[in-house]
């Protein structure tokens, strides 16, 4: 169960404001890779971000996760569960990420040499969750996701089961926010649907908000909220042009459909 159930607490799972980002080494005249005036996810809300490859989708997720630093001239504010993640430095940010953000990858990125159970426990070991609870917590989570052979090496599990282990790992610490980076890109359409059902249901059940990036058009119907990254940029520019409240909150509006 989520630590802060939706409804009782209005703190958004994710709030992005005035985010501008270019990679280090880019010229000041280069366009921003990320240029988002406002983007917000309510607790347990699920949203899809689309856009062609190389448009900065992964970069946005890495910025949100705080594995890329937001250094000048880049600017903006990214809040996860009410905390500005880039205000945290070094190990403090890592600890925050461990506890409040889960990530799911296209290739799962499971740890080799570790069993399914240990992969989930690896997510718990960097959190402040008491060590004695780790094993039971990981086992329960895997069981609820239908993994029985918890001591099997991930590479000996089917692709579908590996996906489940990856989802379990992302949700192990009951994060407020799950970031999914092209989670179905290496699956056929049938398996992709199964995987998305799994991810979306698991996040819903556990009260985690889900920000999913994908270039798969078939994903659109699964998400009530969706946006194209380039449209987010464009909306921002359009809003800025007439001199109106360019950076005003655009919750539910702007490029979001």
């Amino acid at each position: 169960m989520p630590d802060t159930p939706a409804g009782q607490d209005a703190t958004p799972a994710l709030r992005i404001a005035d985010l501008r980002f270019r990679y280090p080494g880019a010229r000041p005249t280069d366009p921003w890779v990320i240029d988002i005036a406002a983007l917000e996810l309510a607790p347990a809300e699920q949203a899809l971000l689309t856009g062609g490859s190389g448009r900065g989708k992964s970069t946005l997720l890495h910025l949100v996760a705080g594995v890329i630093d937001l250094l000048p001239p880049n600017a903006g504010r990214i809040e996860v569960a009410g905390r500005s993640i880039h205000a945290l430095r070094g190990p403090a940010r890592d600890a925050f990420r461990a506890r409040h953000i889960g990530m799911i990858f296209q290739t799962f990125n499971l740890l080799h040499g570790f069993s399914a159970l240990e992969n989930v426990m690896a997510a718990l070991m960097f959190s402040d969750i008491p060590a004695r609870e780790h094993r039971a917590r990981a086992a329960d989570l895997l069981a609820s996701l239908g993994i029985e052979r918890t001591d099997a090496a991930p590479e000996r599990l089917s692709v579908g089961q590996q996906q489940r282990v990856a989802v379990a790992r992302a949700l192990a610490c009951s994060p407020e926010l799950v970031l999914a980076d092209e989670p179905t890109a290496s699956l056929d359409p049938e398996n992709a649907a199964v995987a998305m059902d799994l991810i979306q249901n698991a996040c819903r059940t556990r009260g985690a908000a889900l920000l999913c990036v994908s270039h798969d058009p078939a994903m659109a119907e699964r998400f009530p909220r969706r946006a194209r990254l380039d449209e987010l940029h464009a909306a921002h520019l359009r809003a800025a042009a007439p001199g109106l409240a360019a950076h005003g909150p655009a919750k539910g509006g702007g490029a979001w459909r």
Partner: peptide, 16 residues
Amino acid sequence: RRQVAVLRVLGCSRPR
């Protein structure tokens, strides 16, 4: 490097 990256995403700090 990939394993290190995964551990870092899971919350392992650079010093660790």
